[in-house]
Design a protein around this nucleic acid. Structure first.
Length: 553
RNA sequence: UGCUCAAUGGUGUAAUGGUAGCACUACAGAUUCUGGUUCUGUCUGUCUGGGUUCGAGUCCUGGUUGAGCAACCA
């Protein structure tokens, strides 16, 4: 069997080139470095697939490293959710590390920088420092503390760590170049004092904490990372990443940073800050609300790990910042569930159908879970004189484009059962249809000789006495506009007011014992998953994705 | 009027100096016991000016457009 060769993305090309040149003795090591300050979302999954994927593909290792350098925002709650989500996605890390594992080493390194005249303690306010930084078009000016004697820097930095200095009063800055066109070289802050919050792992051991730029590259170096892959906004940090490492590294080994485009999807946001706000203000039901682009939200929505990974595989990695059509994500999950989700009938807006010439007590029909795939099993459906059908499947005066039930003589198939013809209907005082009447052809049962006759339409049904009630949550896009981040004003006003509609549906009795995370296709409706809060007493289904609907009025 | 990165159909992505291809979307037709699926077909693209070359989406150069960078965040 010939397999079409998938082209390599630009990072894979770099890795293969490095491998061919024998760099790092052929060793490939990556890391996924989340900050434990929020839940993982599908944008992170893109990074996860890259970091773990490269290691897997080239016989390397990918470690999980929590970038926990800011105790103000971080917590073990997030550590747990992150490891859980990565495992659910099906990835295996080598080790779990923490940037806080290196606080001792980083502190010693900072001391060395001070002793070598490459760092100084600044006691200006944050505002003063920001002002002196200049702008992208104007150079900055030097801090008055820039040329403090080394001994004094040493003493003050130790005082910072000893808790003798109040939070916010002093920082340790690298002495580089206040006029550098790259803003990140204008004496970046290496350490700040944080005494107000204990660290989730080191408690009150430290009063000073390293900044990202002084921690990330060094951590990579300490661990032996070869390819440090991140998103595009870190491109401008790369020279500083290299600079810090070059100040102390020995030998030839260097980790290298590479950057790819982050994921944006239409009709959603990919910002932890905005997600946190939606959760905190109760605009969604939580981090795992099925409308959220979080991993736990997608899972609860009914997305499988393989569907999410297939999606990431489709979108690719480049350096072009773009916006992925939400339709591609939906297409991917439909494709993913198509071959596995059992088909069942669920009636969202029921109207009673009475088959006037059906005199038997009722009968049991055996239906395939997926048409044409008998190996995927069958289920029993109760059939009798009184059924529920979808209100929209009957029109008293159907036009020529409507080819379902109508008392105009056309024959319609009841899915997996008999062919019927509508004879009329009954209405209440307001003119609403309360009952539809039809006759059936006893010879037309599905699977029998007489049932081979073609009908233009097939409609869904459930039997009145055996069907069960279920709450069905119809989820739709979270935002009403394609790109909420591009709009002026408050993003919360852009929320889609119809992102959740709840209906009380009648579903087949066969669904009585379903468990959370079981997937189904409700015929003609879409893919649905059993919600985590569902129980035998109160069934709840979440719509994962609707079916495509080409029937336009 | 700084530095950095980028520019291929509506969207995403390939072509690594040699036939601009794939997927999604849209539209049309066929099939269908889901107006789903499947199958077939159609529409639509190399930002722009110059240069190198037998040959440029690809290399060079000028421009245009977009994005990122001025947190004691990561």
């Amino acid at each position: 069997m010939e397999q079409e060769e998938k082209s390599l993305n630009f990072i894979e090309q770099i890795v293969e080139k490095d491998l061919a040149e024998g760099k790092n003795d052929g060793r490939i090591q990556t890391r996924f470095p989340p900050e434990p300050n929020g839940y993982l979302h599908i944008g992170h999954v893109k990074a996860i697939c890259m970091d773990f994927g490269i290691a897997e593909k080239y016989n390397g290792v990918c470690n999980l490293r929590f970038d926990d350098t800011n105790p103000v925002k971080e917590d073990t709650e997030y550590v747990d959710s992150i490891t859980n989500d990565i495992a659910w996605l099906g990835f295996k890390w080598g080790n779990i590390y923490y940037a806080s594992d290196y606080f001792e080493q980083l502190y010693d390194l900072a001391i060395r920088f001070i002793k070598e005249g490459k760092a100084y303690v600044d006691e200006q306010t944050a505002e003063q420092i920001a002002e002196q930084k200049g702008t992208p078009t104007e150079p900055g000016v030097a801090s008055p503390y820039r040329d403090r004697p080394i001994e004094e820097n040493l003493r003050l930095f130790q005082a910072m760590q000893n808790g003798e200095i109040e939070e916010g009063k002093m920082v340790l800055r690298a002495k580089i170049d206040m006029a550098n066109p790259n803003m990140h070289f204008r004496d970046p802050i290496m350490y700040r004092i944080i005494t107000s919050h204990p660290h989730h792992r080191t408690g009150h051991r430290w009063n000073v904490y390293p900044m990202y730029d002084f921690a990330h590259g060094q951590s990579d170096y300490f661990e032996g990372v070869t390819h440090s892959i991140c998103t595009l906004e870190f491109v401008v940090h790369r020279p500083l990443y290299d600079w810090f490492i070059d100040q102390f590294a020995e030998g030839d080994y260097r980790p290298h940073q590479y950057e790819f485009n982050r994921l944006n999807i239409t009709y959603t946001v990919m910002s932890k800050r905005k997600m946190l706000q939606l959760v905190k203000e109760g605009l969604v039901a939580g981090w795992d609300d099925p409308r959220m682009p979080t991993v736990c939200g997608l899972r609860r929505r009914g997305y499988t790990a393989s569907a999410i990974r297939e999606f990431i595989d489709k979108i690719g990695y480049t350096k072009v910042e773009g916006m992925i059509d939400l339709g591609l994500l939906e297409h991917t999950v439909r494709e993913n569930l198509k071959m596995s989700a059992p088909r069942v009938c669920a009636i969202f807006d029921p109207v009673k159908l009475v088959i006037t010439n059906y005199d038997a007590e009722g009968e049991t029909i055996v239906a395939e879970n997926i048409d044409g795939n008998p190996e995927l099993g069958t289920r029993e459906m109760r059939f009798a004189k009184e059924l529920y059908i979808e209100r929209a499947d009957f029109q008293e005066e159907g036009d020529k484009n409507f080819y379902r039930l109508s008392p105009m003589g056309r024959e319609v198939r009841l899915k997996s059962a008999y062919i019927i013809q509508a004879t009329g209907c009954e209405k209440d005082a307001d003119g609403n249809i309360t009952t539809v009447y039809a006759t059936y052809d006893p010879q037309s049962k599905s699977g029998t000789e007489g049932g081979n006759r073609k009908t233009k339409a097939t409609i869904n049904w459930v039997e009145c006495n055996s069907c069960i009630d279920a709450e069905v949550r119809l989820y739709d896009r979270l935002f009403a506009v394609e790109n909420p981040s591009a709009e002026e004003g408050d993003f919360r006003e852009l929320l889609n007011p119809d992102s959740l509609k709840i209906v009380n549906a009648k579903v087949e009795g066969a669904l009585a014992g379903v468990k959370p995370q079981e997937h189904f296709q409700f015929l003609k409706q879409g893919y649905f998953v059993v919600d985590d809060d569902s129980s035998a007493e109160h069934l709840i289904f979440n719509r994962t994705a609707s079916l495509k609907d080409n029937w336009q009025k």
